[in-house]
C-alpha cells in the first residue's frame, strides 16, 4: 500500500495532534542539524573560532530535542497502542531522531577541528569539502522532506544519491593522501581534512538511514540493499 497522504483523521483527535507535534519536532531537530553542518563549514572556511564554538554549544539543543522526541514516542506507544502505518511511523520517528542527533555530532566534530587546523597552509584537495558538505546537507534536507511529506519516491532517490557523497569522499581521500605524500609538513592538517571528509561521508550515510526509515514507514517494506561506492578505507577494497 503506497499511501503518500495521511488525510484520514483518527477518531481520537488527540492522537493526530501528538503525531503532528512529533513531526514538528523532527523538522526542528533536522533543521538544527542542517544548520550545524553549514555553520561548521562556514567556520572552517572563515577560520572563525567563535562560530565553531557556537556550533559545539548548539549541539546540546539537538541532544535535548532527541531526548524529548524519544520520550514522546515511547509515551505515545504506551498510551495509544498504535498499529500499522501509525506504528511504523512512530518507530521511524524514534530511529530518525537518533540518526539526526548523530548528524549533529558529526557537524560538531567538524567545528571542533577549526581551532586545530593551520589555516595558512594551502591544501588544494580540501577545496572540494564545501561542495561535498553541500551535497551531504542536501541529502539530509531531502530525507527530512521525504519524512514530512511521506514521500517514498523521494526517500528512494536520497538512497540513490548517497553515491555522490561517497564519490566526493573517494576523490578527496585519494587526492589528500597524494598531497600528504608530496608535502609531509601538511600531514597534520591533511589528517584533519580526511576526518572532515569522513564525517561528511557519514552524514550522507545517515541521511540514507533516515530515508530508509521513511520508506519503511510509508510502504511497510524495506528498501532494497544497494551497492555502495568504492570505499578506499575499506580493508576489502582493492585498486583493481
Amino acid at each position: 500500500m503506497n499511501t503518500t497522504n495521511n488525510s484520514t483523521e483518527h477518531t481520537v483527535k488527540a492522537f493526530d495532534s501528538d503525531i503532528s507535534e512529533m513531526r514538528g519536532l523532527i523538522a526542528e531537530i533536522g533543521g538544527r542539524a542542517e544548520k550545524s553542518i553549514s555553520l561548521a563549514m562556514k567556520a572552517l572556511a572563515d577560520n572563525d573560532y567563535d562560530l565553531a564554538r557556537e556550533v559545539v554549544k548548539n549541539d546540546k539543543q539537538i541532544d535535548a530535542l532527541e531526548e524529548k522526541i524519544d520520550r514522546m514516542v515511547i509515551q505515545t506507544i504506551a498510551l495509544r497502542a498504535p498499529m500499522a502505518d501509525d506504528l511504523r511511523e512512530l518507530v521511524a520517528t524514534l530511529k530518525i531522531s537518533g540518526v539526526v542527533e548523530r548528524i549533529g555530532d558529526y557537524a560538531k566534530n567538524i567545528a571542533k577541528r577549526v581551532a586545530v587546523i593551520d589555516n595558512n597552509l594551502h591544501i588544494e584537495p580540501a577545496s572540494l569539502l564545501p561542495a561535498m558538505a553541500q551535497a551531504a546537507s542536501q541529502l539530509v534536507d531531502d530525507a527530512l522532506t521525504a519524512y514530512a511529506t511521506r514521500d517514498a519516491d523521494l526517500a528512494d532517490q536520497v538512497c540513490e544519491r548517497d553515491r555522490v557523497v561517497d564519490d566526493f569522499y573517494n576523490t578527496i581521500f585519494r587526492s589528500l593522501v597524494t598531497h600528504m605524500v608530496d608535502n609531509p609538513k601538511h600531514i597534520g592538517a591533511g589528517a584533519h581534512f580526511l576526518f572532515i571528509a569522513k564525517n561528511l561521508e557519514r552524514i550522507g550515510d545517515h541521511a540514507t538511514n533516515v530515508a530508509e526509515m521513511v520508506y519503511f514507514a510509508v510502504t511497510g517494506e524495506n528498501i532494497g540493499e544497494r551497492e555502495r561506492g568504492d570505499n578506499p578505507s575499506d580493508p576489502l577494497y582493492s585498486e583493481d
Binding site: M1, T11, V12, M83, A84, L87, G220
Partner: peptide, 19 residues
C-alpha cells in the same frame, strides 16, 4: 495485518481512523 495491512479499510479500522 497489524504492521502492514494490505487494504485501506483494514488500516483505517486498526489504526482507529474508521468512521
Amino acid at each position: 495485518m497489524f504492521t502492514n495491512p494490505q487494504e485501506e479499510r483494514t488500516r483505517d479500522y486498526i489504526t482507529g481512523r474508521y468512521g
